[in-house]
Design a protein around this nucleic acid. Structure first.
Length: 494
DNA sequence: GCATGATCATGC
DNA sequence: GCATGATCATGC
């Protein structure tokens, strides 16, 4: 086989050539390149033999893998301009990693960074007139396993190739994401953009000293971090599982409104708000839902939407990494209760200092939320009042990280337990001080080892988790304070 | 049997 | 009145 034996003006030819890349270790690609008499695609076309002194390639620069594939397999130098890589056929090439998790499932290892969002020059009104679309309307995705222990770049293998042409069923949601993002820029708030702005399409910081590279924005003097368009990692995970590795498709919210060409958020809002003003007890009865069931609200919402399984498991919630939370508020709009997350493992929390692997990152900061609000109109009578989609804004990142760090420090230094009137209190971050995120217990009953072997509380060992120092105390989780949730529902943190 | 969504109740 | 510590209860 001769290298660069393809026609860059012919999509089928490029795809066919790409097949020669699959299942080959990077080392072999390099060997073939070095044996080839041509070193670039244009030399191949012109039949001129290039004089290239090939220094050995360092297998340590894993971040260069994508660029190296372009250079050593396709034979062109990576460009960073707005044109697509194969500009004659408008195909952009992206090399992107997946990972196999401990439980055997496959996820995207990263978001897919598309192209820089130039605030001053990007078209803010028409998605199909953007630089983004010009460059990325067709993307040849090349997937490799980026998380095999004890390997170098020499061992990397492109396992799958996929021509991504933006799925029709996702476009209403992507256009809505585009509008939400560009509306912020038009409002002079480019500096408030967050990765959680988008359900599928979003923006991430990009450039030298990630997040420290500031750019001008058109409608404000405030400098804004340089950002790039991206497809979120949850979206990529869905793509990998269902389009690349062909796992069973999950239920779809969009499919329940076939042909309507609406974003899934609009479909959900309309279906739920059709019952606005009806009281919860009526709705439980109408939808044949046990009002005592702990997941009665999940059941109610899924029945309103006409799906049979868990809403969080639908295609759209998976792609957007979205979580349903039903909130009961009083007449003033203050939630009745704080809102909990899953119980965390004290030892895991204490020992893992990787922010992007932490529960506050994965379950809170990186999620989007669908809040369904029931308002108390008279004592104990709650009426369906509204829905709100929301993601944690980047400007709260430092605070979430601070609470996480403080909780970890307390665990590592030894939790202080105080017993008073047979009640046990800890020195974890409490909601009185921590206005965004705090920690409190979350179990069937309390059970705390106040002295070695001496327990206080009516619970049992299964209500506890072990601390790093070996004591067992009641399980804890992170919670969002109700006052903060009120601010979110009021739009303060959009 | 326990995880988890939901909610209670005391005391400051 | 509200935060904090505590507990409930179904369904997987």
């Amino acid at each position: 086989m001769k290298l660069f034996d393809y026609n860059d003006g012919d999509l089928q030819s490029v795809l066919h050539y790409t097949e020669a890349l699959l299942e080959k270790r990077f080392e072999e690609i390099i060997a073939e390149y070095q044996e080839s008499i041509y070193k670039t695609y244009s030399d191949f076309q012109l039949n001129t033999v290039s004089e290239v002194s090939d220094k050995p390639i360092s297998m340590k620069s894993k971040g260069q893998y994508g660029n190296y594939i372009e250079k050593y397999f396709y034979g062109y130098n990576p460009n960073s301009d707005s044109a697509a890589d194969f500009d004659k056929i408008g195909v952009e090439l992206k090399v992107t990693p997946f990972k196999v998790n401990k439980n055997g499932t496959i996820s995207a290892k990263e978001r897919l960074v598309l192209t820089i969002l130039n605030y001053m020059e990007e078209n803010l009104d028409d998605f199909y007139s953007t630089h983004l679309w010009e460059k990325c309307s067709k993307i040849l995705l090349l997937f490799y396993n980026g998380l095999i222990p004890d390997t170098t770049m020499a061992d990397y293998v492109i396992e799958k190739a996929f021509l991504y042409e933006w799925f029709e069923e996702d476009m209403p949601t992507i256009l809505e994401d585009y509008k939400r993002i560009t509306d912020k820029i038009k409002a002079g708030k480019a500096h408030e953009l967050s990765e959680s702005d988008g359900n599928y399409l979003s923006t991430c910081t990009k450039g030298a000293g990630k997040g420290k590279d500031f750019r001008k924005q058109p409608y404000s003097d405030e400098p804004a971090k340089q950002r790039a368009w991206e497809l979120k990692s949850s979206y990529m995970t869905y793509l990998i599982n269902n389009k690349i590795f062909n796992q069973e498709e999950q239920e779809s919210v969009v499919a329940t409104a076939r042909g309507e060409n609406k974003s899934f958020t609009d479909i959900i809002s309309e279906k739920i708000l059709a019952y606005k003003g009806q009281c919860a007890d009526e709705l439980y009865a109408k939808f044949d839902t046990n009002p005592k069931s702990k997941n009665r609200n999940n059941l109610l919402i899924r029945k309103m939407l006409g799906i049979t399984g868990d809403l969080d498991k639908t295609q759209e919630f998976q792609k957007a990494n979205m979580n349903l939370r039903v909130i009961r508020v009083n007449k003033d709009g203050l939630p009745k209760e704080d809102s909990p997350f899953k119980v965390y493992d004290f030892k895991e929390l204490a020992s893992n200092s990787m922010w992007e692997e932490s529960q506050p990152y994965l379950e809170i900061y990186n999620k989007r939320f669908l809040f369904v609000i029931f308002r108390e109109v008279e004592s104990k009578v709650f009426v369906l009042d509204g829905v709100k989609f929301w993601g944690f804004p980047d400007r709260l990142l430092d605070e979430v990280k601070r609470v996480w760090t403080e909780t970890r420090n307390i665990l590592n230094e030894g939790v202080q337990l105080t017993v008073k009137d047979n009640k046990v209190s800890t020195n974890f971050p409490q909601s009185r001080v921590n206005k965004i995120l705090f920690t409190k217990l979350h179990a069937s009953n309390t059970y705390n080892e106040v002295e070695p072997g001496v327990f206080v509380g009516k619970g049992k060992v299964s209500d506890t988790n072990e601390l790093p120092d070996g004591r067992k105390i009641t399980k804890h989780s992170f919670w969002l304070p109700k006052k903060f949730i009120k601010e979110v529902l009021d739009g303060k943190w959009d």
